[in-house]
Write a protein that binds this DNA or RNA. Structure first.
Ligand code: ZN
Length: 286
DNA sequence: ACGAGTACCTGTCGGC
DNA sequence: TGCCGACAGGTACTCG
């Protein structure tokens, strides 16, 4: 589910809402969603203050006091949803006008309660995600495995050129590899390949310098616009307040196989690359 | 070292 | 209706 724009949207929401809050209580309904000992996790997290919320690639990082960090990966269907103590959107006279989604629900695996009574729900239908509490040294070990942040100055056409050099796998596989560029996923790789006019199944080391420049520009462009739209809600993605992202309206190829190309009206094709569904325009992309 | 394939879960959708 | 297979935003592992 969440790729860089979605995780960044959640990060911004939660940073604003949780900075300065302290953890009053932690409940874990499904132990496998917490890496390591659940009892240690609860005991060590309780009492810490949230100093800020950061992100590396698709990994959410809550910077806590005591040199600890709470790592959260939402994988495909994870959600991190905040609710203040007074949560009902009221009609003003008892009954809430809008029936909001009830939390916790059957996919809520961890609930963190803060000092002011606000709650943070970690939901994950497919249970691929995880939470992990680490110290400074462990954080460094985790973070150093990620490649360049695509919205940082370090991400240049030259950097991308070096990443495809000598790679016999597909361009798509290189772009999805988090050790190279951190944060791209299936949606935005398909989208940026369309914007750049390059087929994602092309052998990475056969992509030309001109195309590299276009891919680099398209990556930055699509990620920035997706963040501005608060991400893509295709199915389960929700922002830090349970709201939906609006970028699905802007998608040119992802989820549109069999439909007409927005640029040339050709029928979009679907193939599999590295086990991932992939959509492209056979005319606009070379 | 690299690249390909599979496992981890639960749900939805389309075909018969 | 029901059953069955394919598919879903991501990694982490194994094998050759
Ligand atoms: Zn086209």
């Amino acid at each position: 589910m969440p790729e860089l724009p979605e995780v960044e949207t959640v990060r911004r929401d939660l940073h604003r809402l949780l900075r300065g809050q302290w953890v009053k209580n932690v409940s874990v309904n499904k132990e496998k969603m917490v890496r390591g000992s659940t009892s240690l996790f609860k005991r060590n997290l309780r009492g810490l203050l949230v100093q800020g919320v950061k992100r590396r690639g698709k990994l959410l990082i809550f910077s806590m006091t005591d040199d600890k960090s709470l790592l959260v990966h939402m994988k495909m269907t994870g959600q991190m949803i905040y609710q203040s103590k007074q949560t009902l959107v009221g009609g003003g006279h008892g009954q809430p006008r809008v029936k909001r989604d009830e939390l916790p629900n059957k996919y809520t695996h961890v609930v963190i309660v803060f000092g002011d009574g606000a709650r943070l729900f970690f939901n994950d239908m497919r249970q691929f995600g995880y939470m992990r509490l680490v110290n400074a040294k462990q954080l460094e070990q985790v973070v150093k495995r990620f490649g360049v942040e695509p919205l940082s100055k370090a991400f240049t056409p030259d950097k991308l050129r070096r990443l495809v050099r000598g790679r016999k796998t597909s361009l798509k596989n290189v772009l999805l590899d988090q050790r190279g560029v951190a944060g791209l996923g299936n949606i935005y790789v398909d989208e940026l390949c369309f914007l750049a006019g390059v087929r994602p199944m092309r052998r990475a080391d056969k992509v030309t310098d001109r195309e590299i420049v276009k891919l680099h520009k398209a990556a930055i462009n699509v990620l920035k616009r997706a963040i501005a739209a608060r991400g893509t809600t295709f199915n389960s993605y929700r922002d830090g307040l349970g709201g939906e992202g609006k970028f699905v309206r802007m998608l040119k190829v992802y989820g549109r196989s069999g439909k007409l190309c927005v640029r040339c009206k050709t029928i979009l094709k679907r193939v599999k690359i590295g086990g991932r569904g992939t959509v492209y325009c056979p005319v606009c992309q070379k």
